[in-house]
Design a protein around this nucleic acid. Structure first.
Length: 113
DNA sequence: TCCCTGACAGAAG
DNA sequence: CCTTCTGCCAGGG
């Protein structure tokens, strides 16, 4: 149908809702979110959805990192180190190699029913 | 309209 | 551990 609201746009909204559910001091990954939304192959689209955000007033996008614990979205938060500072302020710890300690802080969102 | 470039991730060598 | 390839989708030149 000719609706301007594409399936992808709806997917974006579901991503934002899921990110809003991530508690402070916890992080999750792009792939985990995609999996919870029954779209295992759309991890990249999740990243695209966050990159499209005009601001982070309602969506704590800094709590989303990649599968290895690397802060791949750091650039969107300004100068290097800002994203990490936001996480550390919430109690998230990092390993010596600079990656988030996922074993300790990974949050697994509830899958959609 | 084609081509390229990403806030990803899993498989294969 | 590393590299390359593939699937996914939107936006800019």
């Amino acid at each position: 149908m000719r609706s301007g609201v594409t399936a992808t746009k709806l997917f974006f909204e579901e991503v934002y809702e899921m990110v809003r559910a991530i508690p402070a001091g916890r992080v999750t990954t792009y792939g985990t979110i995609a999996y919870a939304l029954a779209a295992p192959r759309h991890a990249r689209v999740v990243g695209y959805a966050l990159a499209a955000l005009p601001n982070y007033d309602e969506v704590p996008a800094h709590r989303v990192v990649n599968r290895s614990g690397i802060l791949t979205g750091e650039r969107a938060f300004g100068p290097p180190g800002v994203m990490r500072a936001l996480l550390e302020a919430e109690g998230v710890t990092f390993r010596d190699d600079g990656r988030v300690d996922l074993d300790r802080h990974l949050y697994v969102p509830r899958a959609v029913s």
